[in-house]
Amino acid sequence: MDSKDFKKVIIDRLSAYLKTKQFKKKGNVFSLSNGDLTYYIGLQSSQSSNTDILKVTVNTEIASEMISKLDDSSLPLEHQRHYNRRIGSYLNNQQDKWWVVDSYDVAEEAADEIVSIIYEKVIPKFDQLKSTNDLASLWKNGGYIGITDRQRKNYLSLLENTDK
């Protein structure tokens, strides 16, 4: 087995779980839209991966349809993110987390751990953020994850202007 096979083990396990949550798969990224927010869970390979060793992490992201329209960006929604959090930030030590996979058994262990974190931490966080208003509340309370303070202020300003 090589790193492509290891990645397939992880992707297949993610796919089996996320399919039960109605996520759709495109490449290494799974997405789910509620009409306002689109949630993304993506497996990212490190550039230091090679034929024999796979090094991966997981990115969790959210894009707001409303902010996308208000921001008048030329980027399509699927390329915009208004919330971005690496999987390691969901863990108690909040350290970036990469899995180094060099065997089938390690790939299965990594897949199990990734699915467990998504089940226990990521999906519950996504469930708390159901709308653009929920994102705005997070930003107003200083929780602007994965975006800059300037972006946070810009998004809040765009949303405030729609309230008038």
Rank of each mutant, 00 (worst) to 15 (best):
L156T: 03
E160R: 07
Y144N: 11
Y40F: 14
S45P: 03
D112Y: 05
G35K: 08
G146Y: 02
V106G: 08
Y119C: 05
D96T: 14
R152D: 09
N92K: 14
S46P: 01
N59A: 13
S3K: 05
K130P: 04
Y17R: 07
I62T: 08
T51L: 05
S46Y: 11
G88R: 01
A111G: 13
D163K: 15
I145G: 02
L77M: 05
N34A: 02
K125C: 02
K140L: 13
S103G: 04
V122Y: 07
E65H: 14
A111D: 10
L135R: 04
S64P: 00
I114G: 08
I147A: 01
L18S: 08
N92A: 15
K55W: 12
P76H: 07
G42S: 13
K153D: 14
Y155K: 00
I114C: 11
P76Y: 04
L54M: 13
K26V: 09
N161W: 13
L91E: 15
Y17P: 09
K97I: 12
F6R: 01
A107Q: 01
D71S: 05
T60A: 09
S48H: 11
M1W: 11
I10F: 03
L54R: 12
Y83W: 15
Y155I: 00
K121G: 03
K97Q: 15
Q80A: 07
D71K: 00
I147F: 07
F23Y: 13
Q44W: 03
E108V: 14
D163L: 14
L77R: 01
K26R: 10
Y39C: 04
K164S: 12
N141S: 12
I67E: 01
E113G: 10
E78S: 14
A16N: 12
E113K: 13
K55H: 12
D134T: 11
L37D: 00
K153M: 11
K19G: 02
G143K: 12
G142T: 09
N34C: 00
L135F: 14
S68Y: 14
H82S: 06
I41F: 06
H79W: 07
L158R: 01
S3H: 04
P76G: 08
V56E: 08
S73D: 08
Q22H: 13
S157C: 09
L159S: 03
S31G: 06
A111C: 09
G35F: 06
I118Y: 13
D96Y: 14
W139Q: 06
L91M: 15
L135H: 08
D36S: 12
R81S: 15
V9E: 09
K153T: 09
K21N: 04
R13D: 15
Y119G: 02
N28V: 10
A110K: 11
Q95C: 12
I53T: 14
I67H: 00
M1P: 00
K21L: 08
S31V: 06
S46C: 07
Y119P: 00
Q44F: 07
Q128G: 01
Q151T: 02
R86T: 12
K130Q: 15
L158F: 10
L18M: 07
T57W: 05
V101D: 11
Y119S: 07
V106D: 12
A107T: 04
I10C: 06
